[in-house]
Computed example of a mutant assay.
Amino acid sequence: MHFEHSTLAQRVLFGSGRAAEHVAQEVARHDARNVMCIASDFERTFAETATASIEVKLWHSDVVQHVPIETAQRAREAASDAGIDLIVCIGGGSTTGLAKAVALTTGIPIIAVPTTYAGSEATNVWGLTEGATKTTGADDRVLPTAVIYDAELTLGLPVALSVSSGLNALAHCVDSLWAPRADPINQAMAAEGVRALADGLPRIVENPTGIEGRETALYGAYLSAVAFASAGSGLHHKICHVLGGTFNLPHAETHATVLPYVLAFNGPAAPDAAARLAGALRAGMAGSSIPLPGEDPALEAVDLLNSLRATLNAPTALQDYGFTEADIPEAVKRIVQAAPPSNPAEVTESRMEQLLRSALVGDTPAVRTAGSLIQGAGQ
Score class of each variant (00 low, 15 high):
3 F>D: 15
4 E>G: 10
7 T>A: 10
9 A>W: 12
9 A>E: 13
9 A>F: 12
11 R>F: 09
14 F>M: 09
16 S>V: 08
17 G>M: 10
18 R>P: 00
19 A>F: 04
19 A>T: 07
19 A>W: 04
20 A>S: 14
32 A>V: 11
38 I>F: 07
38 I>S: 06
38 I>G: 01
41 D>R: 13
48 E>Y: 09
54 I>Q: 09
56 V>S: 02
60 H>R: 03
60 H>D: 11
63 V>N: 04
66 H>W: 09
66 H>T: 09
70 E>C: 10
70 E>T: 14
74 R>M: 12
74 R>E: 12
80 S>F: 11
87 I>F: 02
88 V>W: 00
91 G>E: 06
92 G>C: 08
93 G>E: 01
101 A>S: 14
106 T>C: 05
112 A>L: 07
117 Y>I: 04
120 S>R: 05
125 V>N: 00
127 G>V: 13
128 L>Q: 01
137 G>K: 11
141 R>Y: 11
145 T>M: 13
147 V>T: 11
151 A>R: 05
152 E>D: 13
154 T>R: 09
155 L>I: 15
157 L>K: 09
159 V>I: 14
163 V>P: 01
163 V>K: 03
170 L>Q: 09
172 H>P: 03
178 W>D: 04
182 A>T: 08
184 P>R: 07
186 N>S: 11
190 A>K: 02
192 E>H: 15
197 L>S: 01
201 L>R: 01
203 R>P: 01
206 E>G: 00
208 P>Y: 02
210 G>L: 11
210 G>Q: 04
211 I>S: 04
213 G>Y: 01
213 G>W: 01
217 A>H: 06
220 G>R: 05
223 L>H: 02
225 A>C: 07
227 A>P: 04
229 A>N: 12
232 G>Q: 02
233 S>T: 13
235 L>Y: 07
239 I>F: 06
240 C>W: 03
240 C>S: 03
244 G>T: 08
246 T>D: 10
250 P>S: 11
251 H>P: 08
252 A>V: 04
253 E>I: 06
254 T>I: 00
256 A>F: 05
256 A>I: 05
257 T>I: 07
257 T>W: 01
258 V>T: 05
266 N>E: 10
266 N>Q: 13
266 N>H: 00
267 G>P: 00
272 D>C: 06
274 A>W: 01
278 A>K: 03
281 L>E: 02
284 G>F: 05
285 M>K: 03
287 G>A: 03
287 G>F: 00
291 P>F: 04
294 G>K: 05
295 E>G: 10
297 P>D: 11
300 E>Y: 01
301 A>P: 06
305 L>M: 14
307 S>W: 07
310 A>V: 12
310 A>C: 12
311 T>R: 14
313 N>R: 14
313 N>S: 15
316 T>I: 12
318 L>G: 00
318 L>R: 06
323 F>C: 04
324 T>I: 12
330 E>Y: 10
333 K>R: 13
338 A>W: 06
340 P>T: 07
341 P>S: 07
345 A>N: 06
355 L>T: 09
358 S>A: 15
362 G>W: 03
370 A>N: 13
370 A>K: 15
370 A>L: 11
371 G>W: 10
372 S>R: 13
374 I>D: 02
375 Q>R: 15
375 Q>G: 10
376 G>N: 00
